[in-house]
Design a protein around this nucleic acid. Structure first.
Lengths: 339, 339
DNA sequence: ATGTACAACTCAAGCGCTTAAGCTTCTGCC
DNA sequence: GGCAGAAGCTTAAGCGCTTGAGTTGTACAT
């Protein structure tokens, strides 16, 4: 099966292969008439550019990398990534850019993978997720000068694109809502402390609680798993002055908390209100349905891809802010129990 | 930033670039001594092959494609894909093969994406998931002669690899178990009827029910969503001779069923036993915890990649059978209520 | 008539690697 | 001594495309 190349198009059109290249790439150098003839022939014989040849001469790989650094078994539970990827794709596929996915264990492995992909000229740019407050990947990105976009808060110290959402506002809204319901003892079960947004949210939570003049804010840090979520909840609910409302950093832990409360004979939402940090189908399916912070992850992916592609095209890095998550109220929150 | 090429290695080693190529690819044509010298220099200056150049000359793209054909919003819920991908990766990354992921709406779009990727020489092979009984992608794969592996039952009509699991045995085990618990009216809420394994499982279910001499098997087909799962459950439970046990084709629908039963005042597992078709963290987190068919999806991905890579290397397509899913018994199943 | 400018091409080098074919040595053997 | 054969290289032609420099042809001003 012989490959169809521009040489064949050139021959059929009776022009040089250079002219064909100009024509097919929409650059000046050929008359509109010739261009049309060439494009028609290309369509007719079903020509497609060889990415390898394009990359080799044009120095563009026509792919971007997404390197997810998480232990494999915690991945399945997160509905986040598939949605995010679907969003990325929506932008990338239109521009004929491929998405190179890698799943690795940790940041060390991610850095190695990044270096390799870049050295092999497999990718033109990279999407960084799960940003740490101190992220070892960033210096490497800078050193290698890889176009990169952060799925998270922009950094002042780096010439990187960023797509982010106002975590502080979302936390504020949740706390305000619970306070309005009469809650005075509100706790937070946070995710991985190393993650940048975990810190932001914790800070926002502290501030909001103090702003309302409530008692000393209680925060427990976890690794996002159901196990640690349950454990944290158990600890909080065992205290004498147990909270009447808890904010969780994702949905899985919030769900685990419902079970813990049931175990301990604490009614949800009668005696305990629960707010989940991520919204997913899970929140709707469970009983009581979980009040959750909801936002458009697919749009997040889409915009992330847009910012990255802009950078690859040489435009300056942008910083795009997504809409703030909305609090979707369901059955897991109610007025605080009478003191 | 100049790229490090084999030309530089050749210069440093005082040999021709041809010799370097032979040396680095472990082919005969250079002495062991020279080879070592070349490899050392390559390591020292941090040389990495340009995939583009390799592809262009060697006619291998060093990537495989995974084109997921599903509407984006149903993707998030499925823990399947992330696990599967993690498994694929475990094999691919070791061999420096990249995974090209695409998410498209339907099979028509998937075919288009396949054709394009192949024409552009972006991929060496492809993984097919979500096989339909009549799958329009297969003729295209055959026409283009793309090395491909089916994540599903082997087809006799195609020279394709396959990695699969014995769905019939798994369904049999579930039915046997329920019958042993005394259930005589068992129903099934199946997934998408177009999917090949849905048909296999339905057939297995019918056969098992009849084998046990039970009443006419009841099967409802759905699209896997919680909504249709709930609706199907509601219909089944509204019948005069309502089932005392229902098998679901995934976990989300089983969960929806728990809610429906609660709505209708039917106790789970007291009056109704529920078995979920997929196992995920969901099953453990919900109350009652769901009895489910559990299997190693990551291994499934791993083996799928192995079979595909073998084919790409020119070995004949293999058909590998995974371990049959085990029934993990949790709180959602119990002895049948007394007649 | 001559020069200038520009559009529309052609040419050929080059991207980084593979690989068949050719060229030197060196060894072994009759 | 002479020759086959092999080991260990080098050479150069690709792979399919881009792109800067060069060429031709036409229109228009001088």
């Amino acid at each position: 099966m012989k490959r169809v190349t521009i040489a064949e198009i050139a021959e059929r059109a009776g022009v040089s292969i250079g002219a064909v290249s100009y024509a097919l790439n929409g650059r000046p150098g050929v008359s509109e008439e010739t261009r049309k003839r060439i494009v028609d022939i290309a369509d007719e014989i079903g020509w497609r550019p060889s990415v390898a040849a394009k990359s080799l001469s044009g120095s563009r790989a026509h792919s971007v990398g997404l390197i997810i650094a998480r232990p494999a078994d915690t991945l399945g539970v997160e509905p986040f990534f598939m949605r995010f990827i679907a969003g990325l794709e929506r932008e990338l596929s239109g521009q004929r850019i491929a998405l190179l996915l890698q799943v690795v264990e940790d940041h060390r492995a991610a850095i190695e993978a990044m270096r390799l992909c870049w050295a092999e000229r497999r990718i033109d740019g990279i999407v960084l997720t799960d940003l740490y407050a101190e992220d070892t990947r960033i210096p490497v990105i800078e050193e290698l000068r890889i176009p990169a976009v952060l799925a998270g808060r922009p950094r002042t110290d780096a010439r990187l694109g960023a797509v982010w959402t106002d975590d502080k506002a979302a936390v504020d809204a949740s706390v305000d809502y619970l306070v309005a319901l009469g809650h005075r003892r509100i706790a937070r079960v946070a995710g991985l402390p190393a993650l940048d947004h975990t810190q932001v949210r914790i800070a926002a939570f502290r501030e909001a609680v103090l702003r309302h003049g409530l008692s000393e804010p209680q925060v427990v840090e976890t690794d996002y798993t159901a196990e640690e979520g349950a454990q944290a909840t158990r600890a909080l609910l065992s205290r004498r002055d147990r909270p009447t409302a808890i904010l969780f950093d994702n949905d899985v832990m919030a769900l685990a908390a419902i079970n813990v409360a049931q175990e301990m004979g604490i009614a949800v939402p009668g005696e305990l209100s629960i707010v989940a940090g991520d919204d997913s189908q899970l929140c709707v399916l469970v009983r009581p349905a979980l009040t959750a912070l909801s936002w458009d992850i697919q749009a997040y992916g889409l915009h992330t891809a847009q910012v990255l592609l802009d950078m690859i095209d040489g435009r300056p890095p942008r910083s795009h802010q997504e809409n703030t998550a909305r609090l979707v109220v369901r059955g897991s929150t109610a007025a605080a129990p009478p003191a």
